[in-house]
Amino acid sequence: AAGGEDGGPPDALSLEEILRLYNQPINEEQAWAVCYQCCGSLRAADARRRPRRRAASAAHIRVWRDGTVTLAPGAGGAEEPPPATGKLGYSQCTETEVIESLGIIIYKALDYGLKENEERELSPPLEQLIDHMANTVEADGSNDEGYEAADEGMEDEDEDRRKVSAIRSYRDVMKLCAAHLPTESEAPNHYQAVCRALFAETMELHTFLTKIK
């Protein structure tokens, strides 16, 4: 855990720590929230020209006290060579590769503790989001219009939801997460609150278990 320097309570918990403490998977709303919040921080990191890294495991996703979610520095994992850097020292790891790694980790967090021969039934919109993030969608030619997260807005929200077939950017992911809510404009506050609660509740559980021990 990213802890206070004074040895006090940590300011962040990794997703892995959260899963282990609860010993159960995250729920769907938490999955939407972690996706949204993490893509938000990844967009901000891109704007600051930070090198892109794939998320290797849930240990590299940090949920902060204030509801921010970040990918830990050096999240590429020991088994993965550092990504090549281009001019300006900017990593050549693509945005879609980072999104793919995030989708896989989110799925595993939803699948935590399940046996190999078991599969969790996910709501279709969340399964679709993860399917597209992880790039596991099977091309059947029936849904090939692409998700255009362009500036034209979402005039027909339901139509847009049906047309999802490609996620190319953090913004695409965030738009889909926002479209999941009754009011899209509430996405920043709502998802931050969900992640803040996830941190707070996990800390409460940690404190409780420590006292019991």
Binding site: E116, E118, E119, R120, D131, E201
Partner: peptide
Amino acid sequence: KGKSLYKIKPRHDSGIKAKISMKT
């Protein structure tokens, strides 16, 4: 608190779990 129940079904070869497993 903060957790919801979820349904579990048998893993399917064409399901998302199998597809994710193939990626990792």
